[in-house]
């Protein structure tokens, strides 16, 4: 043992490393303080500007009225249960339909060519049509045909439209995941004797789906918001309930109530998505960055 090695052993850390850590700590504190002060200044100034503006009293009255908030809340909450039901059912169906379409698009058997063409055309066409137009076409158009055995309920067609529309997007998300799995994985699976379908099911998809969970959740945040579109078909969901209240009172607080209810659902989901992305990054980089 040399003299130089002795202190290292007693503290378990070289003086250089200790200094470096202390420096990093002070840097962190400093950036935290700067961040807090700059946020305070920016948001504080904004708040002062808004509150002292001449129209503030009127805005406060028509957008932030506590009485209207309380009065409209029960009805809107009741309507919001419909939103939740609609997108929960839609989400499950979308996951299934889109996965099927994605697998078809990535299939290689020449026998499946017509299906592959159909899936590609479906994604191209549906993704290009605004959801609101699809809603009119499905919700008013198909029931008007008076076909035998076709359901006529508004909620059925609302969910059907959302499934048709969002499946086209989610198919592409799945497809990106499937294509991101390296070709060697498939080759290795085939060399072990798995069929093409088996290697897709047991080797490619498990990796692909895990990779696309964050973008999938992102699409579902959008789906939750779009559940308000079904009001067009007459369904009294949260947005329509608030619109009825606003039309009666000319007070816009009811819209705020609906917005808050949507936020209560979408913000936790957005945070959860961020958490998953971070976790995934850690796994990919081995936690070294």
């Amino acid at each position: 043992m040399t003299e130089a090695e002795a202190p290292r052993r007693s503290t378990g850390m070289s003086p250089g490393r200790a200094r470096r850590l202390a420096f990093q700590r002070s840097q962190r504190r400093r950036s935290l303080a700067i961040g807090a002060i700059s946020s305070l200044v920016v948001f504080g100034t904004l708040a002062v500007i808004i509150v002292s503006s001449p129209g503030w009293e009127a805005v406060k009255e028509s957008f932030f009225s506590w009485e209207d908030f309380k009065a409209s809340f029960p009805d809107i909450l009741y309507g919001f249960r419909r939103n939740v039901r609609i997108f929960l059912i839609a989400e499950v169906l979308i996951l299934i339909v889109a996965l099927l379409l994605a697998v078809i698009r990535n299939s290689r058997s020449p026998l499946l060519t017509p299906l592959r063409l159909g899936a590609t055309a479906y994604v191209d066409v549906i993704r290009g049509i605004p959801t609101i137009i699809l809603l009119y076409l499905f919700g008013f158009g198909i029931p008007a045909l008076d076909l035998q055995g076709v359901p006529n309920s508004q909620e059925f067609w609302a969910i059907a439209t959302l499934v048709v529309s969002y499946s086209a997007y989610v198919t592409e998300v799945y497809r990106a995941g499937i294509e991101s799995v390296h070709e060697s994985q498939r080759a290795a699976a085939r060399s072990l004797g798995l069929t093409s379908a088996q290697s897709m099911r047991f080797v490619v998809l498990p990796q692909a789906v895990r990779r696309v969970i964050p973008p999938l959740l992102n699409d579902f945040v959008a789906l939750q918001k779009d559940s308000a579109l079904v009001a067009l078909l007459g369904v009294q969901e949260a947005f329509r309930k608030s619109q009825i209240y606003v039309a009666k009172t000319f007070n816009f607080t009811a819209y705020l109530v609906a917005a808050l209810l949507f936020l209560l659902l979408t913000i936790p989901l957005a945070r959860f998505t961020d958490y998953l992305i971070r976790r995934q990054q850690k796994r990919v980089t081995g936690g070294s960055l």
Partner: peptide, 12 residues
């Protein structure tokens, strides 16, 4: 117009 479309489609 929307209400009439829904009525015509038999939803009401």
């Amino acid at each position: 117009a929307d209400a009439k479309a829904a009525f015509d489609a038999g939803q009401l």
